[in-house]
Design a protein around this nucleic acid. Structure first.
Length: 275
DNA sequence: CTGGTCGCCTGTGGGC
DNA sequence: TGCCCACAGGCGACCA
């Protein structure tokens, strides 16, 4: 399930390969993944012949910058993959869209669950995507300050786990890293956000940055689906402290890790050293 | 505004 | 061996 570190790893793995290439043609096998424009022929028509200028990322969204100020926005949701492969490679099951590149390579969108989404927009229309219109600060940017973060939490009575998953508060955290960040900061996931003490908020703030950085260094977390643009798995699954470690001893206090549904999501935490 | 639930999808794995 | 069902989870939509 690609969260910020996974999407960033995909971006890095594809940038050099794609920059400067032209999209000669495309095959669409599952039209519903294209959300904008609603007319699929128009999508094809505009994209054909465009040059890929570069790749950006906003939260969990991947942005393909195209010539003529167009932009393709991709959200991989849970099982989406974006793969750069030679055109003679077998087209695997669940391949929904293929961009034919000018060098006998393909950029393929593969997604078992079909939840992923693709938008084609002008680069000044990004705000028309709801998830981007109010997207919170990037955790590794200077816009994400302890003060901004503390102010957001003060207004929220929801459980802190749920607030961390809210992309409007801070961009890019998903279920895995929300659990890991809370463990790192010794905070229980069901605490109301506005009940955190100032030093806990500070701890949480630092943990978000630390965990996201480490996960990017490890090129993301692979459980089943996630791979980068070259099909390579990540390594951060070997560094997780609570996620998917139910009943295993906590690395800090040996207490068995608990799993519980919180705000509709499976949540992993240590009842011994998170408070 | 809040909180809860559902729908979108398919593969996997446990229980029987 | 096979059937059923819960679960995986990001996010928008919908409702009270």
């Amino acid at each position: 399930m690609p969260e910020l570190p996974e999407v960033e790893t995909i971006r890095r793995s594809l940038t050099e390969k794609l920059a400067g290439l032209t999209i000669d043609n495309l095959d669409i096998y599952f039209e519903k993944i294209v959300k904008e424009p609603t007319d699929i022929d128009r999508f094809k028509e505009i994209v054909t012949g465009k040059k890929i200028k570069g790749l950006d990322r906003l939260g969990k969204y991947l942005l393909l910058q195209l010539s003529d100020n167009y932009i393709i926005v991709i959200h991989l949701r849970m099982t989406g993959r974006l793969l750069y492969v030679a055109d003679y490679e077998d087209v695997t099951k669940h391949t929904h869209l293929i961009f034919h590149l000018g060098n006998n390579y393909h950029l393929r969108f593969v997604d078992v669950r079909k939840f992923g989404t693709i938008y084609l927009l002008k680069d000044n229309e990004l705000d028309t995507i709801k998830g981007l219109a109010h997207l919170g600060p990037e955790p590794l940017s200077e816009n994400f300050t302890a003060q901004v973060f503390a102010d957001s939490l003060k207004k929220k009575s929801k459980k802190i786990k749920q607030v961390l998953l809210d992309q409007d508060i801070v961009a890019g955290l998903g279920n895995i890293y929300a659990d890991e960040v809370l463990f790192e900061s010794h905070i229980l996931p069901d605490r109301p956000a506005n009940s955190l003490k100032a030093e806990e908020v500070e701890e949480l703030y630092k943990s978000i940055i630390k965990i996201i950085k480490e996960a990017i260094d490890h090129r993301g977390t692979t459980f089943s689906d996630y791979v980068d643009g070259e099909g390579k798995k990540g390594e951060h699954q070997d560094h997780l402290k609570v996620y998917q470690r139910t009943e295993q001893p906590c690395s800090r206090c040996q207490c068995p890790i608990k799993k519980e549904k919180i705000a509709g999501r499976s949540s992993h935490y240590c009842p011994g050293c998170q408070h």
